[in-house]
Nucleic acid binder design. Structure first.
Lengths: 120, 120
DNA sequence: ATTTGTGCATACTTTAGGGTAAGTACTTGT
DNA sequence: ACAAGTACTTACCCTAAAGTATGCACAAAT
């Protein structure tokens, strides 16, 4: 984390926006490019770290682990590690994360419709 | 647009991911931080540029106009300008953009639930 | 003995996104 | 005469996000 300039007007405004606009609130939590994609891949059930990696070949390991940690910190996913070697770690949706499924579902549906209509 | 290095593995993978993961497809269209927020503010009906600006004080003019242009180019919103002075320009959702409303709605609903549950 | 797979961490660099500020052209209000 | 509002555009700069690459500890398989 980098320190935020106190004089930053937009940061103050962002705080204000958070209270007024629900979508802003959501974007603060899953606003990254990768987070919705990760959540989508967890919608089918728990996945090992390496499974996610293979399922999303476009993501670098750094990004994957970084976002997994953030999602865990935000209580959207749950990490479970078995103390064996080689490591066996799985990730799955938390109840709060499950609550996001309508959003992810709606995204997936729109994508299909958009493609059908040739808007792509 | 900046040229993409041919040797970039992740770019190739991104292409691949676009075909396989619907959420990736959505993120390419509305993946920015501001786009869903803008769309949310257009969900109530058409808005003038200056109205949007005041409704989203956290966004700089540069970002606002930039994303409006991109959304227009992606056929998600429609721009209408009356040839008067001072200018009178309104933005509203296109049919395709309207199709995104379930996503935006789901986001807004989740935000409220999340706040109620004290997950904030 | 070397390679492979696991789930990360860390440093180092590049890039793209975004901030600030100024300008434009024209009109209405004071 | 001057400021203010409208919808932008452009240039300059800076930082946060992301890519690349490497290392680690340990075990099983070759």
């Amino acid at each position: 984390m980098t320190a935020i300039k106190e004089s930053s007007t937009i940061q103050e405004n962002k705080q204000y926006a958070l209270e007024k606009c629900p979508v802003t609130y959501v974007m603060e939590k899953i606003g990254g490019y990768w987070k919705p994609i990760i959540l989508y891949h967890l919608s089918g059930g728990s996945q090992r770290y390496s499974e996610l990696k293979r399922a999303i070949p476009a993501v670098s390991e750094k990004m994957l682990i970084q976002h997994l940690k953030q999602l865990e910190a935000d209580n959207l996913i749950i990490r479970e590690a078995k103390p064996v070697v080689p490591p066996f770690v799985t990730y799955r949706l938390s109840p709060a994360g499950n609550g996001l499924m309508p959003v992810i579902q709606a995204m997936a549906e729109w994508a299909f419709i958009d493609k059908e209509n040739g808007f792509v």
